[in-house]
Amino acid sequence: MSATTLGRARHGLTLGGYAICLEGVLWREALRFIHQRGRFLAALVRPLVWLVIFAAGWRQVLGVSIAPPYHTYILYSTYVVPGLLSMIQFFYGMQSSLSMVYDREMGNMRVLLVSPFPRWFLLIARLSAATVISIIQCYAFLVVAWLWGVEIPDPGWLAVLPALIIGGFMLAAMGMVLSSLIRQLENFAGVMNFVIFPLFFASSALYPLWQVQQSSPILYKACLLNPFTYVVELTRFSLYSTWNLTALLVVVGCTIAFTAAAILAYDPARGLMARRPGAGT
């Protein structure tokens, strides 16, 4: 073993060390998720309520006409599935940010941040863990939706995975930025009202954008400015094994921007945390 390797090994910063650290963060997130079965059920029930009740009610009223990526008329329940997949990831991203605020209040966050691994890596590991768990939930929902009678193209099961990875990461990063802005757990209710609901409803998750444009041009513009719209569209197209380049570019761009903002926010030199006495980082 060379001196460099010896030195790095002592400080845990070998490539293997990085892998172990990432695995540890993923493992802890998975354990917490398994221990909180209620979270999994809630994550599954929420989109199912939309699919089973909301979409069933609207399927006779709303037929969705032919528009890419669909090649034929589709039922509303088919239309709404990609939006609900994104909703799962959105809610899990926010839930993950909620748990970061909780960790900060309880002090667990400090344990993560005093690791010798670089802060950016630790935060990305945390984002990756949140993304993996949200993808598991998405596939669980897809299975239930399929059992409910929603047609999912065979290649779509695999083709949607890259979109779920990128979209999940973006939404988790957005949640992490929000977590850095929230001082107390109690303030998280405000995030629900001012972030989650507006972004979810002002998107293409529940209704096609061309229909929004016809009814409200202002809302249509708001939908176009909403990054969540592009996560939904990326997921929708990839479920049908096609790529929406605009959506891909916007989502990748937002992922980079939110991740950079999150790393900056948790940076001890420049971050918002350092400016608060007893911030309980």
Binding site: T14, G16, I20, C21, L31, F117
Partner: peptide, 26 residues
């Protein structure tokens, strides 16, 4: 730390193993 920083939902051993992973221990 002054404040308690254990993950209360994890076992004692899992808390230790998590910390070991954060330090890159195999």
């Amino acid at each position: 730390f002054q404040a308690r920083t254990l993950d209360l939902d994890l076992s004692v051993r899992d808390n230790l193993l998590y910390h070991a992973a954060l330090h890159g221990l195999g």
